[in-house]
Every structure is written in structure tokens, then in C-alpha cells.
């Protein structure tokens, strides 16, 4: 845990009926954009909600800017955008600042109005009269208007068209021009990470599969395709292997394990999608043996 981390979880475990997060250690470094990626149910939202103090851990802890997650001391230093709008449907957009501004220590009403204008959120509309894209932009306008250091976004692009997604990315980039600012967002659309994220955390079934710089992820893993059969010595190295009817296979592997597969295979770069999918497939088949998917 270096002083450069704004958000740190230590052995964070969250259990509802099953384990949503299992003893995860995650750190979010200051000044960078961190992307949290993984399939649905991987624990991304659970992690973010724990970091925001919206739910209490079963065990372990999360600290934000040196304070326990959820402390009133840090909450308004975090700008929050969740995938559902936290505003009453009847509220008129232009009145929201006047309503909730005093609930924050530093609310800038002028900035709020300015952002609404820039993001083209119609000020006289009611919250329930906004499109999906407009509600996300409204949430961001609110989040940015109380001078946060950290921006946390949970699946912000779900339901957004490509133009709105591009706008959102630009807004985040502008926020990141200040080196004291940090952004962490979760997504299951991995292509968004490539342009935006500096640091990436891959979650699968409540555990961290990878945690580091995005390009390191791609340098660490590769895709192997072979006509088969899968060499016995290589079985353990194959992550989320998929087989076809002729015994051919495709799997994710660590680049270090390439030699185990012999010479008669094709090695390809692994995209972030490949990595997420294969890890998901891997944990699924290890809990349901014999169900490996036909490639």
C-alpha cells in the first residue's frame, strides 16, 4: 500500500448468499484511470459499493483517502455515478443544485449550471423526463460540482449510444487533466478500457485475476489454438479451454507457458475480452466439470 493509492481494500470479503467478493486486495492509484472489468456477477459493483460505504464488508476493510470507506469526512471528496439515478423523479434538473448543494461541503452552483449547459441536459425537464444518456450526464454534472478528487462510476456506459459514450470518455479525460484527480470505473464492455484505463483490475467470481497496467495484461497472456489433442503437461496451463468436435482447442495461457504446447500451435495476442471470457469460462468449468464449451 503506497501513499499514492487513494483507495485500498485489504482482504475484503463480502458475502450475501454466496461470496460476492473473496478476500480481495485492490488498490487504486492516484492520478490514473483504473478500470474494473469482469463478467456480470464478478463483484465489480459490490466492490465499488463497499468502497463507497454503501454496504458493509463481511470481513476485511476498505480505506479511501486514509479513512474508512463511507466516512462523512471523505464522502464528498468522491463524485459518484451509479447505474441508476439517485434523484427524485419529480425534481426539475435546474433546482437540484439548490436542493442538495448544502448537503455537500463545497458545492459550486455555477459550475453545476455550466455543466448542464455543456452536456446539453435540459434544465427545465424533470428527472423522469430525461433520456438515459441525459440522466448519466446529469449524474456526472452533480458528481463534478462538489469538487471531488475521485470519480467513481459503476457501469456508466450501459444503455448509452456511441456518441454519448464518447462524450462520457471526454468528460473523464478532462477531469483527469488535474494530476490530483483519480477515476475508477467498472464496465463489462472491455473496448472502453483500451483508450481510457491506465490501470486495470480483472475480477472473476469475486477474486482478482489480474491487477496492473493494461499493456502488462496483454504482455502476460496469449491465446493458443491447436488441432489437438491438448498435451497432458499443458492441461494445467490452459485457462478456460474450449474444444471443438475434432478435439481441437483454444485456450488462454500465460505467455511463459507457451513452450508446454509444442510447436504445432498458433499463438495469438489476447484481447482484454479474451482474458475476461476465458477466465469466466475457466471458473465455470472448474465448478461444473465436463461442461467445456465446444469452440
Amino acid at each position: 500500500m503506497t501513499t499514492g493509492d487513494v483507495l485500498v481494500s485489504r482482504q475484503l470479503t463480502v458475502r450475501r448468499n454466496s461470496f460476492a467478493l473473496r478476500a480481495v486486495d485492490i488498490r487504486v492509484p492516484r492520478g490514473y484511470v483504473t478500470g474494473l472489468v469482469g463478467p456480470n456477477g464478478a463483484g465489480k459493483t459490490t466492490f465499488l459499493k463497499s468502497a463507497l460505504g454503501l454496504l458493509a464488508p463481511t470481513s476485511g476493510e476498505v480505506t479511501v483517502l486514509g479513512h474508512p470507506a463511507g466516512s462523512a469526512a471523505v464522502q464528498d471528496r468522491i463524485g459518484v455515478v451509479l447505474d441508476r439515478t439517485t434523484a427524485a423523479p419529480e425534481w426539475r434538473v435546474e433546482t437540484i443544485g439548490r436542493r442538495i448543494g448544502k448537503l455537500y461541503r463545497r458545492w459550486d452552483e455555477q459550475q453545476y449550471r455550466g455543466l448542464l449547459d455543456r452536456f446539453d441536459v435540459p434544465p427545465r425537464n424533470r428527472v423522469d423526463g430525461l433520456s438515459r444518456g441525459q440522466t448519466v450526464k446529469l449524474s456526472i454534472a452533480i458528481a463534478l460540482s462538489h469538487d471531488p478528487e475521485i470519480l467513481v462510476l459503476d457501469e456508466p456506459t450501459s444503455g448509452l449510444d456511441p456518441v454519448a459514450r464518447r462524450d462520457l470518455a471526454d468528460i473523464i479525460r478532462e477531469f483527469m487533466l488535474d494530476p490530483a484527480h483519480t477515476t475508477v470505473f467498472s464496465t463489462h464492455i472491455t473496448s472502453e478500457l483500451d483508450d481510457l484505463a491506465d490501470w486495470i483490475v480483472v475480477l472473476n467470481s469475486g477474486t482478482v485475476v489480474f491487477d496492473g497496467m493494461l499493456h502488462e495484461l496483454h504482455e502476460k497472456y496469449a491465446i493458443v489454438r491447436g488441432a489437438g489433442p491438448l498435451p497432458a503437461a499443458a492441461r494445467a496451463a490452459a485457462i478456460g479451454a474450449r474444444f471443438d468436435a475434432q478435439g481441437g482447442y483454444e485456450a488462454l495461457i500465460r505467455v511463459d507457458d507457451t513452450a508446454k504446447f509444442g510447436g504445432d500451435v498458433v499463438i495469438d495476442g489476447a484481447s482484454t475480452d479474451d482474458i475476461v471470457v476465458h477466465f469466466a469460462e475457466h471458473s465455470h468449468s472448474t465448478s461444473h466439470p465436463g461442461s467445456e464449451v465446444a469452440a
Binding site: 490514473y32 484511470v33 479525460r173 483527469m176 487533466l177 483508450d195 484505463a197 491506465d198 493494461l214 499493456h215
Partner: peptide, 17 residues
């Protein structure tokens, strides 16, 4: 670094490298 990253729409790490 940050200006270029925002302008080119790439991650900060990319420009840093």
C-alpha cells in the same frame, strides 16, 4: 502528458511510455 492523452484520446500510461 495529460494534455496529450486527453487530446489523442489515449490513456495516460500510453503517453507516459
Amino acid at each position: 502528458l495529460r494534455q496529450l492523452a486527453a487530446q489523442l484520446r489515449v490513456s495516460l500510461i500510453t503517453v507516459t511510455r
